[in-house]
Each structure stands twice: as structure tokens, then as C-alpha cells.
């Protein structure tokens, strides 16, 4: 009699489980993200930017470094309606002080911005995650070294440190590789992996004495397995959020460096460099500066909105 009652109850429970569609935490997060209108708008801008970046050589009307001497400092086509004498229907957004097409240079600039956003962040993720895990779970000299290193890095503002690395190493082989992009990747990675490592270390410290880790250890899981299979999935949410904000941060740093004249080497078009070069002729025409400034604002806002959306979706409590 008693056994039948138990089995009926179990059957009912199983039936209940099957009837309700299973939804994982991640599924919920995706659902919350897609309900966030600002995040969707940001995502759309990023997809569009990626499209422009990939197909720039096909859709751009000119070459980004092709100069056209009599057609310098053309103004965008719409300024014609406001009485500008200096427009040319061949240059929709006008031309810069060397007669290069601004629209083309903006399109190619998208490439640099997106690459700088993603490549260093991928490096930061790999380095920061592995060191943060070991530091938190194993401790020992790795942990000590990490903490001391953090103390020093925290005394430097990020941008200051990046500036020093880039400014001093610009003349070396590392600084000239890939038009200076490689050095920017390296500098960004050196400065930013520490923050992620510390974040993960803190999370791991609070998780490592929980029952599920103890259980895994009791059945003989190796430390590497525990870190990868048990700890890592549980620290992933804040890591994703932090990386989502690292992307616009890296793009902003590149723009600032190029604006200061120590970023990607000319004539490679980047938005920051376009602002830097255009500033010389700002009094004559503001467009070579205004248009890239506008592009930077839009792409950074897009990434920030997605980051905000991810944060709200992954952990509603983290909201500031």
C-alpha cells in the first residue's frame, strides 16, 4: 500500500516535469535580453557595423588612401541645401584635407574599431580567466603574485599605463607590426587582464567551500576538472558582463590613442586618427571631425546598451 502511494507520487512528479517545458537559467537570460529594446537596438547597430567592416572593400566607393588634390575639404552633400559652395556629388560625406573620401575612410575605420574591440578582449578572457581560477582555487605563489601585481597596476590609471607602453614601444618592431595595431592589443591586454583575474578570483574564493565543490572533490575529481567543469560555469555570468563592457573600453582607448597621435599609424584610417587629422582644418570645415566623432559615439553607445542589457539579463540583482 505504502509503496504504491510513493510510486504514484513519483509518477505524478515525473508527469509534472514533462508537462512543464524546461527552461534553463541561460534560456531565461536570453529571453530577458531580447525583451530589452535598448539592447536590441545596440545589437542591430553592431551587426550593421560588422557588415560594413567585412564588406568595406566592396561597398566603399574609393580606396581609403586615395588622394584627390583639387577635391580637398568637400563638405557633405546635404550642406548644399544650406548654401555650401563646396560639395561634390562624388563625395557623399565630403572629403578630408588630402581629398580622401570621408565615407570610405569611415567604413574602413569600422574595421579597426571592431578588431580592437574583440581581439584584446579575447586575450584578456583567456589569460584573466586561467590566472584568476588558479589564483582563487589553488592559491599559493600565483595568488600572491597576482595580488602584488594588482596593487601596482591599480596605482596607474588604465589609460596612463596604456599610453606609457604605447608611447615608449612605438619605435620597436612590436610597435610597427600591423600598422601599430599589435602593440595596442598587447598594451590593452597587459593592463586589463588583472581586473578580470581579480573578479574571477573573488568569485572562486566564495564558491570553493560550497558543497557541490566538496562533493566533486570527494568523488576524486582532479583540480583541473573541478575548475573547468564546476567552477567555471558558475562564474561565467559576471565574466560575460565584465567582458561586454571591456569591448567598448578597448575601442575607446584606441580612439583616444589615435586622437593623441600615438595610435594606429597613418594613413590607416581609424576614427580617432580622423578626428586628430581633421582638427587642423576644424576652422575651415568641421565635418572631417564631426562625422567620425558621431560614429564613435554611436558604436560605443551600442556596445554599452548591450552590456547593460546583458547585466540586467544575467543577474537582475547587479543593477546599478
Amino acid at each position: 500500500m505504502a509503496t504504491t502511494a510513493v510510486s504514484t507520487r513519483r509518477q505524478a512528479a515525473q508527469h509534472d516535469l514533462a508537462a512543464r517545458k524546461q527552461r534553463s537559467l541561460w534560456r531565461d537570460a536570453v529571453w530577458r535580453l531580447f525583451r530589452n529594446r535598448a539592447a536590441i537596438a545596440g545589437l542591430a547597430v553592431i551587426v550593421f557595423a560588422a557588415f560594413v567592416a567585412i564588406f568595406a572593400p566592396i561597398i566603399a566607393p574609393y580606396s581609403p588612401i586615395q588622394q584627390n588634390t583639387p577635391k580637398q575639404l568637400m563638405e557633405p552633400i546635404w550642406t548644399r541645401w544650406f548654401g555650401s559652395q563646396f560639395t561634390d556629388s562624388g563625395y557623399l560625406l565630403g572629403s578630408d584635407e588630402l581629398g580622401r573620401d570621408i565615407l570610405t575612410r569611415l567604413m574602413y575605420g569600422t574595421r579597426v574599431s571592431l578588431i580592437v574591440g574583440f581581439v584584446p578582449v579575447a586575450v584578456i578572457f583567456v589569460v584573466g580567466a586561467s590566472i584568476g581560477m588558479v589564483s582563487g582555487y589553488v592559491g599559493g605563489w600565483v595568488d600572491n603574485l597576482l595580488m602584488r601585481f594588482t596593487d601596482i597596476i591599480y596605482a596607474f590609471p588604465d589609460l596612463l599605463f596604456v599610453i606609457i607602453i604605447v608611447a615608449t614601444l612605438r619605435g620597436t618592431e612590436l610597435g610597427t607590426a600591423m600598422d601599430g595595431l599589435l602593440l595596442i592589443f598587447v598594451a590593452l591586454a597587459i593592463v586589463n587582464w588583472v581586473g578580470l583575474a581579480r573578479l574571477i578570483r573573488g568569485q572562486v574564493l566564495s564558491l570553493k567551500h560550497r558543497e557541490f565543490i566538496e562533493a566533486a572533490r570527494a568523488i576524486g575529481a582532479t583540480p583541473v576538472r573541478i575548475m573547468i567543469r564546476h567552477l567555471f560555469p558558475n562564474v561565467l555570468a559576471p565574466v560575460i558582463v565584465s567582458l561586454a563592457f571591456a569591448i567598448p573600453g578597448a575601442m575607446l582607448t584606441e580612439a583616444t590613442l589615435s586622437f593623441l597621435g600615438i595610435g594606429v599609424r597613418p594613413p590607416t584610417p581609424t576614427w580617432g586618427a580622423m578626428i586628430n587629422e581633421g582638427f587642423i582644418v576644424f576652422q575651415a570645415t568641421p565635418w572631417p571631425v564631426l562625422l567620425p566623432a558621431f560614429c564613435i559615439s554611436i558604436i560605443l553607445l551600442a556596445f554599452t546598451f548591450v552590456g547593460d542589457g546583458l547585466r540586467d539579463a544575467l543577474d537582475p540583482r547587479m543593477k546599478i
Binding site: 583616444t256 586622437f259 578626428i275 576644424f282 568641421p286 566623432a293 564613435i296 559615439s297 553607445l301 554599452t304
Partner: peptide, 18 residues
């Protein structure tokens, strides 16, 4: 606040100067 933290200061400065 979002705009202020996201948009780099030199970009804001450019718009203001303009």
C-alpha cells in the same frame, strides 16, 4: 549618465566646440 560615461570626453568637447 549613460551618455556621460560612454562617450569619450574629446568627442563631447568637439560637439561643444562646434
Amino acid at each position: 549618465a549613460t551618455i556621460g560615461t560612454t562617450i569619450p570626453s574629446f568627442v563631447t568637447a568637439i560637439f561643444l566646440i562646434y
